[in-house]
Computed example of a mutant assay.
Amino acid sequence: MFNLDSIVRKNIKDLKPYSSARDEYSGEAQVWIDANENPFDTGVNRYPDPHQYDLKKMVGSIKGVSPSCLFIGNGSDEIIDLLFRMVCQPGTSNAIVLPPTYGMYAVAAQINDVEVRKVFLTSSFEVDVSAVLRAIDANTRLIFICSPNNPTGTLVQSSTIEQIATSFGGIVVVDEAYADFVQQGGGAVELLARNPNIYVLQTLSKAWGLAGARIGIGVASPEIQRYMAKIKAPYNISSLNQQVAINSLEDMEGFKMKVELIMEERERLQKALSSFSCVVTVYPSDANFLLVKFKKVEEVFLHLKQNGIVARDRSGEKWCDGCVRITVGTPDENTYLLEVLNMYKKL
């Protein structure tokens, strides 16, 4: 049975959060002399909204959740770090990750002096639920599930996530950075009503094209989010980034058009790459990238670099021997990639 108060660190529960000037007064005024700001207007001489009310309202409307269930982070990486700080006791707690997967989960654990327990995916990139449950002990506080997974592109079924969540007394973090590229299914947000120990990570970096703005989104129960709000930096999202995000979210038609094009191009690349003799496997993907296994990966990787193409070599990861992760680019970029690989085939 999940009991949030039983796993939140005592020092976090006892923490009196920093109260900023904008926490103590958020109404309208003619003269602002409460925050030691520069009075001359530069467009950003005032501190930003520390709670991102306008941005949360827009995100909540799009995601179909209450703003009280949202947390906005300086990228998902900030949210990951705060989750460790909230429930993991340094030197005592442990967290479970499912490699091959996003490397920041383990990095954040090590920064916070938290043991990392690796439960590898199966050779077909599926979650071994029994192995995950066996790895849990009394000090396990977090389990990270990336869906669609990076670098494999594979989607974790909701039933698998829920099976783990219902058997675990800690928090199951479901990283859905690539959820907008999934053709069907509502994702883990739909599981929150039944599973208060699920924390969903999403982002505006991928499908929304705002990687440089660093807008991570956490979706969870209001109870969890209240603790997250206590421990975050007072002004963790700048005014500029909040406004860029709001402007982008207003262009829903543009968003849908770009996502649809990326998914069409993903299918085109999947089919084309599968026809090359230098390719062993193009793995199915629900993300904006493809994991491709080559016969001579070092040669192919060098050939791409020599022709101005930078991909990501993932051959050092478990089950990914000989694999390169290829992000779906623009139609012209994808065409050039295929032309360069065709040149390699003829060498």
Results as ranks from 00 to 15, higher is better:
residue 163 Q to R: 15
residue 103 G to S: 15
residue 141 R to Q: 13
residue 112 N to S: 06
residue 175 D to C: 01
residue 103 G to M: 13
residue 158 S to D: 15
residue 123 S to I: 00
residue 126 E to Y: 00
residue 147 S to W: 12
residue 132 V to D: 06
residue 166 T to E: 09
residue 109 A to L: 05
residue 157 Q to D: 15
residue 161 I to L: 10
residue 145 I to K: 09
residue 162 E to K: 08
residue 178 Y to A: 02
residue 177 A to D: 07
residue 133 L to F: 08
residue 106 A to H: 04
residue 173 V to T: 06
residue 165 A to W: 14
residue 158 S to H: 06
residue 151 P to R: 05
residue 165 A to V: 12
residue 158 S to C: 09
residue 140 T to M: 06
residue 154 T to R: 06
residue 138 A to E: 12
residue 174 V to C: 12
residue 113 D to F: 03
residue 175 D to M: 05
residue 114 V to W: 11
residue 109 A to H: 06
residue 167 S to D: 10
residue 128 D to N: 14
residue 177 A to G: 01
residue 116 V to F: 08
residue 178 Y to S: 04
residue 147 S to E: 14
residue 122 T to M: 11
residue 175 D to N: 06
residue 134 R to S: 15
residue 120 F to S: 15
residue 170 G to K: 07
residue 150 N to D: 04
residue 149 N to L: 00
residue 148 P to R: 05
residue 134 R to T: 12
residue 153 G to L: 01
residue 107 V to W: 01
residue 178 Y to D: 04
residue 158 S to V: 06
residue 119 V to M: 10
residue 116 V to C: 08
residue 121 L to D: 10
residue 125 F to Q: 14
residue 158 S to N: 15
residue 122 T to Y: 07
residue 114 V to S: 13
residue 103 G to L: 13
residue 134 R to G: 11
residue 112 N to C: 04
residue 142 L to C: 08
residue 115 E to F: 14
residue 148 P to G: 05
residue 114 V to A: 13
residue 164 I to V: 05
residue 124 S to R: 09
residue 170 G to E: 11
residue 128 D to P: 02
residue 104 M to N: 13
residue 151 P to L: 00
residue 168 F to G: 07
residue 173 V to Y: 03
residue 158 S to A: 15
residue 108 A to S: 15
residue 154 T to D: 02
residue 176 E to H: 02
residue 178 Y to Q: 06
residue 132 V to N: 07
residue 172 V to Y: 10
residue 171 I to K: 00
residue 112 N to T: 02
residue 167 S to E: 12
residue 143 I to H: 05
residue 134 R to W: 12
residue 133 L to D: 07
residue 148 P to F: 00
residue 111 I to K: 14
residue 149 N to H: 03
residue 114 V to F: 12
residue 137 D to G: 11
residue 135 A to T: 01
residue 140 T to Y: 03
residue 152 T to S: 09
residue 166 T to H: 02
residue 155 L to E: 11
residue 133 L to I: 10
residue 118 K to L: 08
residue 122 T to L: 09
residue 107 V to Y: 04
residue 162 E to T: 07
residue 155 L to R: 08
residue 109 A to Y: 05
residue 164 I to N: 04
residue 104 M to W: 03
residue 104 M to P: 07
residue 174 V to K: 08
residue 115 E to W: 12
residue 127 V to K: 04
residue 168 F to S: 08
residue 179 A to I: 02
residue 181 F to I: 01
residue 175 D to F: 00
residue 172 V to H: 10
residue 111 I to H: 12
residue 145 I to S: 13
residue 157 Q to P: 02
residue 169 G to S: 10
residue 165 A to R: 13
residue 168 F to W: 05
residue 141 R to D: 12
residue 130 S to V: 05
residue 145 I to H: 09
residue 156 V to A: 07
residue 167 S to N: 13
residue 143 I to R: 04
residue 135 A to E: 05
residue 109 A to D: 07
residue 154 T to G: 01
residue 165 A to G: 14
residue 133 L to R: 08
residue 122 T to Q: 13
residue 145 I to Q: 12
residue 114 V to Y: 11
residue 175 D to W: 00
residue 170 G to H: 09
residue 146 C to K: 02
residue 177 A to E: 11
residue 161 I to G: 05
residue 105 Y to K: 11
residue 144 F to Q: 06
residue 164 I to F: 00
residue 177 A to R: 04
residue 158 S to Y: 05
residue 124 S to K: 10
residue 154 T to V: 01
residue 108 A to G: 14
residue 169 G to F: 03
residue 127 V to I: 14
residue 104 M to F: 10
residue 107 V to A: 08
residue 170 G to F: 10
residue 154 T to M: 01
